[in-house]
Simulated scan of single mutants.
Amino acid sequence: MMTSAMIWNEPNNKSHWDPEVDPDWVIFAETARMAGEAVRAESSRITRVLGGMSPIDPVFIMKMQQRGVLAQMDAVAVHGFPLDWNLWPIDHWPAKLDEIKAVTDLPVWVSEVGVSSFGSEEVQAWGVNKTAGLLKGLAPRILWYSLFDLPSAWEATTRHREAEGSSYYRHFYMGLVREDGTPKPSLEQFAQHAPDMGICQWFHFEDHRLDDAVTWLKRLGVKHLRTGISWADSYRPNALAWFDRQMEALADFDVTVTFCFTPEHRGIAPHHTSAPQVVEEFASFCASMTRRYAD
């Protein structure tokens, strides 16, 4: 069911890795390196991917190379949202990939790319086609973020509402399908590019949208899916039952599982973005999930 493992998500973004706890990613490098080793020890077939960068930063990749992380990876990944948050034009996508290809021989995935419909659903539909035209053929994996809008009653927990102001609300409109289950114009445009483009869809613990997601993904002809299994959620009651249900539901897809989120009681700081107190514990979690869900 699981064909690739992504080690963390946006590690060079403070929304996912706290720079005050680990300002130069020294602990992250050790965490990622040990996790990569642990995944490989469980399965030689799993593709190990360094968590997608946001922002796209060749200096970060060079640091990971110097600290032995890339020796335990089979690919690296980038995230980009030039119509919403990044300070570069959408036409710069090929150049942004070239920046990373210049500092590593590993394949470069685009594991999150998207356009919010917060301002205009028509702009989002245009963005799907523009993104596909720029990226198809340049990256071995292109994953659109996301299938569903984030429900308005939820919180974008990895983001910083106070710091982001109005741009925070763009996070709630990244989907091809509205919160009420109706398709946006972008859905029809995306269907023209599947299966060349896959989907990144995060599922919350015991997410009620799981079965609907599978229906939509099959209808669209999606082959590649990226989602997550949370280390923090593994301490919840019935965690394995939920993980099993999620992975069984996604069994017909080529699934990239992202391992991330520190349990509050196991972090140096009590937050899911904190470096862990004991890096071996995260590696052990990655190993156990790989053992359970590798194809």
Rank of each mutant, 00 (worst) to 15 (best):
L176N: 06
M64K: 11
V278N: 00
P82L: 01
A191T: 11
V177R: 02
S120K: 04
V26N: 10
F60K: 07
K223N: 09
D207H: 06
V128Y: 04
E37C: 15
G51W: 08
E281F: 00
F60S: 15
R236F: 15
Q124I: 00
P276Q: 01
G165P: 12
K130E: 10
P55S: 03
P195H: 06
G114S: 11
E122S: 04
E42D: 02
M62D: 09
P55R: 08
A38K: 00
S111E: 11
S111D: 11
P263D: 07
R236Y: 15
C200D: 02
S120M: 03
P270V: 02
W17V: 00
S186W: 06
I100N: 12
M197Y: 02
Q65L: 11
V113K: 05
T262A: 01
P151T: 05
L225S: 07
M247G: 10
E164D: 14
H79C: 14
F60E: 11
R266G: 01
L250Y: 12
M289S: 02
V78L: 14
L240M: 14
I199V: 13
H208A: 13
T131W: 09
L220F: 09
A156C: 13
L50T: 07
M1T: 05
S54Y: 09
M64C: 14
G267F: 09
Q189K: 13
A239R: 10
S117T: 01
V108P: 15
P19I: 01
D84L: 11
E99S: 09
T182W: 02
W231P: 03
A29P: 01
A41V: 00
E281Q: 13
T31Q: 12
D180V: 03
D57A: 13
S117V: 01
M53E: 14
P11R: 03
D254P: 01
F282D: 04
T215N: 10
D211S: 11
T31H: 12
R292L: 14
E122G: 01
L135S: 07
L217C: 07
H265A: 11
Q277E: 06
W8A: 08
I229K: 05
V255A: 04
A287E: 11
P19E: 03
P270F: 07
E99L: 13
M34D: 05
M197L: 15
S54C: 00
G119V: 03
E155N: 10
W85Y: 15
M247F: 10
W154G: 00
W88S: 06
F60C: 13
T47F: 03
A269N: 09
R40D: 13
P195C: 06
A5L: 07
S111H: 02
W85T: 05
